[in-house]
């Protein structure tokens, strides 16, 4: 199918992009993996596209002096998969199964975060890791915590005039184990349930910190705080993990569709949460 007519402007600099973002009828395009399919079906009909795809300042992955990892918003999934980010167990799990190779070669980290598909994998990973999302506007820079950023289906805390420039991940640590486990919707490849899990044992045998986030289950990717709470102080026995996982969709209105009704999705949220936590603990040794 063919999109409706629109005007196109390629931003030559970040400042030029920021001057255009937020005007009525304008959408930002980077890889276009989320936006173009909607436009082809005429479900999205912007009057103007601002192409930020060439902004070199938004590309690349670098380690910050404090050990954190800064991922430029235009970094593709494929680039991320060969960057130091792959050493985070949950990213190593998630990246090879996001979309397909063609999508990973074009789809960008910033695009996935800004689009906030309710079944997108990357937001769950960022939530679990307590990542930061850096945005810019003409007004200046704004740093969002991932927790709280994903506000609903295709909806984020990003202001109309803001562009995501960078994602920052906390530095890797030896006392953390992480994993990602998902059940895919066969046709689309999106997750029916995706669970990102990170567990930390700061000395001793008990879990002292946990980040558990789910996608596909509710309106938007979310932190499963009841699961996290149940894990703290927990030794990570199979029984205790299983118990913690039962809280996977506490307080969430669970989605239902032809591929997974809400009852099934609820059960899978529990099962995959348990699996992700167990795998994360397994990596902790």
């Amino acid at each position: 199918m063919i999109p409706n007519l629109f005007d196109y402007q390629r931003a030559a600099s970040l400042d030029e992009a920021l001057a255009l973002v937020g005007s009525p009828g304008t959408k930002v395009i980077a890889g276009g993996m989320s936006l173009l399919p909607l436009m082809k079906l005429r479900l999205a009909n912007p009057e103007r596209l601002v192409d930020i795809g060439r902004l070199a300042e938004l590309k690349g992955v670098r380690e910050l002096p404090d050990g954190r990892l800064a991922i430029g918003a235009l970094t593709t999934y494929s680039e991320l998969a060969v960057s130091p980010a792959r050493h985070y167990g949950l990213l190593g799990d998630a990246l090879p199964d996001i979309g397909d190779v063609q999508v990973r070669n074009r789809g960008t980290v910033g695009g996935a975060v800004a689009h906030c598909d309710p079944a997108s994998d990357l937001p769950a990973v960022l939530l679990a890791l307590d990542a930061e999302i850096v945005a810019r506007s003409k007004r200046g820079e704004n740093v969002y915590a991932a927790d709280g950023f994903f506000t609903g289906a295709f909806s984020t805390a990003l202001a109309e005039d803001e562009l995501i420039t960078e994602i920052r991940l906390p530095g890797p640590r030896d006392d953390a184990g992480s994993a990602y486990a998902s059940l895919a919707q066969r046709a689309s490849g999106y997750s029916i349930v995706g669970v990102a899990a990170i567990v930390i044992k700061e000395g001793g045998s008990a879990i002292t910190k946990a980040g558990i986030a789910l996608t596909g289950v509710g309106d938007a990717p979310y932190r499963a705080k009841a699961v996290e709470a149940a894990l703290i102080g927990n030794e990570g026995t199979p029984e205790s993990i299983a118990e913690a996982a039962t809280h996977a969709s506490d307080g969430v209105t669970v989605n239902g569709d032809i591929h997974a009704d809400s009852e099934y999705r609820t059960a899978m949220a529990v099962a995959y949460t348990r699996r992700a936590i167990a795998a994360a603990l397994g990596r902790l040794g």
Partner: peptide, 13 residues
């Protein structure tokens, strides 16, 4: 050398 889906990329891109 990178595979992409040319139905999901604008010619201008």
């Amino acid at each position: 050398g990178m595979a992409i889906k040319s139905c999901t990329m604008l010619a201008v891109q």
